[in-house]
């Protein structure tokens, strides 16, 4: 099984994780698990391997199983390696009404991958997700913390081009520049 290459938080991430754990009443710091898993995913290249989750368990002083069961419940956590740039296209009702299905088909043929797959160069992973609360801008997709709304085929093409050109580091939901205490 593959593993996260880097399994240790940066000093900034460590400080932020400690700060987050301090927000809950004494003895209730387990509350911070989801925010800290977001940090871990950002720190570990966009996904969480068992070793990465074990690191979080040690950091939080809880059992590894407590981390696994949470990480596997919530859809934002990737338990398999992903590309640098994870494209999450909303597929639910209102976006579907506005053509989300064809946006997905378009991206599939453009990148030559199916939903759930990663391009061979490791740049893009395509996912479909449920309603992202942007129905007024349907069809839409999310990359990292960025919402791209009112998509058209041309717009998707230029967004993909941009990411292809400008992405050097994996893009995470918890933006790297927001990791500081």
């Amino acid at each position: 099984m593959e593993d996260n290459k880097n399994i240790e938080f940066s000093a900034d991430a460590l400080a932020l994780a400690k700060k987050l754990m301090g927000r809950y009443p004494e003895g209730k710091h387990k509350s911070a698990i989801i925010p800290i898993l977001h940090l871990a995913q950002a720190e570990f290249g966009g996904w969480l391997s068992p070793k990465g989750m074990d690191y979080v368990a040690t950091l939080m002083n809880i059992q590894p199983i407590e981390v696994y069961e949470v990480a596997s419940f919530y859809s934002m956590f990737n338990l398999q390696p992903v590309g640098k740039c994870v494209i999450e296209v909303c597929r639910t009702g209102p976006c579907w009404l506005m053509g989300a299905e064809d946006i997905v088909n378009h991206i599939e043929s453009k990148l030559n991958i199916k939903v759930g797959e990663t391009t061979t160069d490791g740049m893009f992973t395509l996912k479909t997700v449920e309603c992202l609360a942007a129905c007024g801008g349907a069809p839409m997709m999310q990359v990292g913390q960025k919402y791209h709304e009112d998509l058209t085929f041309n717009k998707v093409d230029s967004i993909l081009e941009d990411y292809k050109k400008n992405t050097t580091e994996p893009i995470s939901h918890w933006a790297k520049d927001k990791i500081k205490a």
Binding site: R23, Y74, S75, F77
Partner: peptide, 26 residues
Amino acid sequence: YCHTGGGAYICGEETALIESLEGKRG
């Protein structure tokens, strides 16, 4: 404080939200 979820519609249900806020499955 602000607290972030992890992607689960069910956490909009108030007791699932509380479970999630306690650091558990929703």
